[in-house]
């Protein structure tokens, strides 16, 4: 009895340490992707950072209930999507959505290009294409945008997108098709 009472707290402390270590590894591994997804969704660096922090805070609170049915990334992405939805639905934040004070405009967002060895002309062309895609993304519904970004920015498989969003694969495909159609139309306009 006495031995048990000494051993048990030590055992639980070790389990807590392991859980903390695991969670810290998950944060290190997935934080950049979550931030990237939220940045692409909001086009607002401050908001993306805030929502990323909230996402990991929420994940930390619920880490013990994470059973590993899906990958940690899918689980975190689901939290991030829900937080983003909550944010936009929040009445107080609706004003900010309409004014978009912190989100950068399409031109500014299109400025970001990888530092390759391409010519100035190629860079201009790439910038123009990126601007068209951003314009198309801006016109998508929330769900279409999420599916599109998960597919073409986060490179998630259709099954993963379905698991993350809670939609069926067929619905994901339909949303993707519409989103890609929009991008195609936008690019066609820019010809």
């Amino acid at each position: 009895m006495a031995a048990g009472s000494i051993v048990e707290p030590m055992h639980s402390a070790t389990a807590a340490d392991i859980a903390a270590d695991e969670f810290s590894r998950v944060v290190t591994a997935h934080r950049p992707q979550i931030f990237r997804f939220l940045l692409a969704s909001t086009r607002d660096v401050d908001l993306a950072e805030t929502l990323t922090q909230e996402c990991f805070l929420k994940a930390h609170r619920n880490w013990s209930s994470f059973r590993g049915d899906s990958s940690a990334m899918t689980w975190l992405m689901r939290i991030a999507i829900n937080l983003q939805k909550d944010h936009w639905r929040n009445r107080r934040m609706r004003f900010w959505r309409t004014t978009r004070t912190n989100s950068v405009d399409l031109d500014e967002a299109s400025e970001w290009l990888p530092s390759g060895e391409s010519s100035a002309e190629q860079k201009m062309l790439a910038k123009e294409q990126v601007r068209h895609v951003w314009k198309a993304v801006e016109g998508l519904s929330e769900r279409q945008r999420t599916v599109f970004l998960l597919r073409y920015v986060e490179e998630r498989e259709l099954s993963e997108i379905a698991a993350t969003t809670g939609l069926s694969e067929g619905t994901v495909k339909a949303h993707l098709s519409r989103a890609v159609g929009r991008v195609r139309t936008e690019l066609g306009r820019g010809k």
Binding site: R36, L39, A40, A48, L113, Q129, G181, R184, G188
Partner: peptide, 29 residues
């Protein structure tokens, strides 16, 4: 989603550039 092969190539390229652009922005930020 479409029949125009030139537009398909353009779309392919645009999506790749979009991904790279978001990566660059996100990494920098």
């Amino acid at each position: 989603a479409g029949d125009d092969p030139i537009l398909d190539l353009k779309l392919d390229e645009a999506l790749r550039n979009f991904k790279l652009s978001v990566d660059a922005w996100s990494e920098a930020a």
